[in-house]
Design a protein around this nucleic acid. Sequence first.
DNA 1: AAACCGGGGGA
DNA 2: TCCCCAGGTTT
Length: 375
Amino acid sequence: MKLPDGWSPRTLAGVRTKLLNWFDKNQRDLPWRRTVNGARDAYQVWISEVMLQQTTVAAVVPYFERFLAAFPDVRALAAADEQRVLKLWEGLGYYRRARHLHAAAKLLVAAHNGDLPDDPDVWAPLPGVGRYILGAVLSQAFDRPLPIVEANSLRVLARLFAYPGDPREGEGKVWVWAAAETVLPAKRAGDFNQSLMELGALICTPAAPACDRCPVRDNCEAKRLGRQDQIPPKKKQPAITEVAEVGVVIRDGANVLLCQRPADAGRWQNMWEIPHALRMEGEDVSAAAVRVARELTGFDVEPGAEIRTVRHGVTRYAITLVCVGSVLRGGAFAAGHYANAKWVAPRELGDYPVSSPQRKLMTALADPNHQPRLF
DNA sequence: AAACCGGGGGA
DNA sequence: TCCCCAGGTTT
């Protein structure tokens, strides 16, 4: 990466020092930053990094504490039942992260006796480990000089060097990784990486950055140009697509059907969708869901309808059929797929991991006064 | 390159 | 409401 005009190696060294000093003084007290003999525990760093993907620090803290209490080390995690791992993840979202974490823990115990080695080649092939997690864990736990790029550091670097394009796309991605590598010091790489993220979280915020409190304000090219509000450009928001989610309860006497899709169900992850073609002319969406569920299962089906909007790039389906107690998106389950289904008493449903929207739906459906909203 | 995964918090 | 968040995987 080419440094802006007027930047010497000395300028760069000054930036590094200022950021590290600022971090030493201003870092937040977070549970995964606890150290033992000056070193961070690789397992704790790893867990925190995975939980923090696309998730705010405030949301993660209580989950991290619970998770660590249940699974204090990689051996405990590897030995755990997947359902218990998912249950502790319930409400965090992106459940595939938990499955990958669990699978990776098993691999590490099988292949490395449960050690978390200071070796990128061991980490790189693990499920759920990309370039960011790799750099974050190895730099923080072992002080390896590996760069990181995530939402915060991307913003800080784009502003510091006034990158004119979008650092999230195309050659911008290449540039921002090169920039992260260029600014990284040989020593204290972990603290330096964290300083970029911490600065992005506390000072160099997406809107209204607090430049007057920034330790590198005198070096920031975006500030010099007065363009800190335009750099980096805002992410394009995908169109809002309305998705109808229809909840149904499938009953056999006192029990309800609980289905969980096998983790390896692959392309069938959306198999509970009711294709438009299955809906009869003029039929309500909710009526179609009940009819199809009844035909698929042959059991009693109670209707319950909810609707919510979701923000996805393109969501083509219009009807989602939800079996009570069934869904962990990105890894769950579907009505009509019985490989992993069982009948359970309604009060036992709480023992199973379910995503929050499904939990809400289940609660509503369990309420005798609930009036399904039909559409 | 684009789509997918989810929920919470702040402005 | 809208925007954002310690990304990775799949197609």
